[in-house]
């Protein structure tokens, strides 16, 4: 898949942007996010229920505050539902000269980053990602911090291979 060819390419036969095949994120990433978001939502519900029906007189916490606080576990549950549907649709694709990332459920975003414009790459791993062998790849271009190209939910092995490919591409071009 990742051989370093540098052949002459005819611009008319270039594979078009519309025909990119996206590879879905690692299954572990989808699962970890579901469990994590589910746990957060559940614990928020438990907290709220404890505050609302706890063993104390009813007037210690004003009902209006409880009503407002009700939105917090609701939002957490919504983000869980969103993740359940949106995460499997995330995907990335590596072509010979660029890297693409697709995400979103209602608002679909497809970003394409040419490899020659990448200034440096880094791999980010939080504690959970380290525990489950996941990694996030970040590629910085001259477009500034706001347009950092980030692919979350790669397996650590894939992320390292991607980084090596990008670095090799930079030195060979």
């Amino acid at each position: 898949m990742r051989d370093l060819s540098n052949d002459e390419i005819d611009l008319t036969t270039l594979s078009a942007h519309e025909s990119i095949n996206f590879i879905p994120m690692s299954g572990k990433y989808v699962l970890v996010r579901r469990v994590l978001l589910g746990a957060i939502a559940l614990s928020l519900w438990v907290l709220w229920a404890f505050a609302a029906f706890g063993p104390w007189p009813m007037d210690i916490i004003a009902p209006s505050i409880l009503n407002i606080a009700f939105t917090i576990p609701c939002l957490a549950s919504l983000s869980l539902v969103y993740a359940i549907f949106a995460d499997p649709r995330k995907g990335y694709a590596l072509r010979e000269h660029d890297l693409s990332y697709r995400s979103g459920l209602f608002f679909l975003h497809t970003l394409t980053q040419p490899l020659t414009r990448i200034q440096h790459v880094e791999i980010n791993r939080g504690p959970l990602q380290r525990r489950y062998g996941l990694a996030e790849l970040r590629a910085y271009s001259a477009g500034g911090q706001a347009s950092t190209f980030a692919i979350p939910g790669l397996s650590h092995r894939d992320a390292r291979q991607l980084r090596e490919f990008i670095v090799a591409h930079k030195t060979s071009h």
Binding site: F107, H109, Q113, P114, R117, S141
Partner: peptide, 14 residues
Amino acid sequence: KVQQVQLHETWLMK
């Protein structure tokens, strides 16, 4: 001179 391209769609636009 382009550094990166981004395509944005909503389902209605799609």
